[in-house]
């Protein structure tokens, strides 16, 4: 009697474990489909710049700037990305997407362009997560 009872309890335990597993598997599959959609969506946008620090508030901290293939950065309002900061040159830098990578090129600015704290001398490839410093404005390249 006890043996049968134990067997039933054991099977109940295992069954419950597999029910939980089944639940997880279902969520996983649903997420997988969701992830595909999200990836398809993100492929249309090639990246964005997240503003981390901006003493003069333009662009404001926390803004995500959607990027095109060619982006000019500077204090001149005709730039794709307009930055209001006394330490930024009128035409400061070019941020371009070529092939599979992002590149940053300084346009002969007075105070220079920095990637992760290193001054950029020639076009440099960026990876997602790299930090750009232009004047006193810090921005991060994100997917």
């Amino acid at each position: 009697m006890l043996r049968i009872l134990l067997l039933v309890l054991q099977l109940a335990f295992l069954g419950l474990l597999y029910l939980i597993l089944f639940g997880f598997a279902r969520s996983l599959l649903r997420d997988l489909r969701g992830a595909e959609r999200m990836e398809r969506a993100s492929r249309t946008g090639i990246g964005r710049l997240a503003v981390i620090e901006s003493p003069d508030g333009e662009p404001p901290v926390g803004r995500d700037i959607a990027l095109g293939a060619i982006n000019s950065i500077g204090r001149n309002v005709n730039n794709t990305i307009y930055v209001e900061d006394d330490f930024v040159s009128a035409n400061h830098a070019m941020l371009t997407f070529r092939g599979r990578s992002w590149f940053i090129e300084d346009q002969g600015s007075t105070n220079g362009t920095y990637v992760n704290g290193h001054r950029v001398e020639r076009p440099v490839a960026l990876s997602y997560g790299d930090e750009l410093t232009i004047g006193r404005v810090r921005m991060r390249l994100e997917r």
């Binding site: 006890l2 009872l5 134990l6 309890l9 054991q10 109940a12 335990f13 419950l16 474990l17 029910l19 939980i20 639940g23 997880f24 969520s27």
Partner: peptide, 18 residues
């Protein structure tokens, strides 16, 4: 997904005790 644990963990304890 946390709710089924309310059953699973106590069931394991009971089974061990029995």
């Amino acid at each position: 997904m946390l709710l089924p644990l309310l059953l699973l963990v106590p069931l394991g304890f009971v089974l061990t005790h029995v």
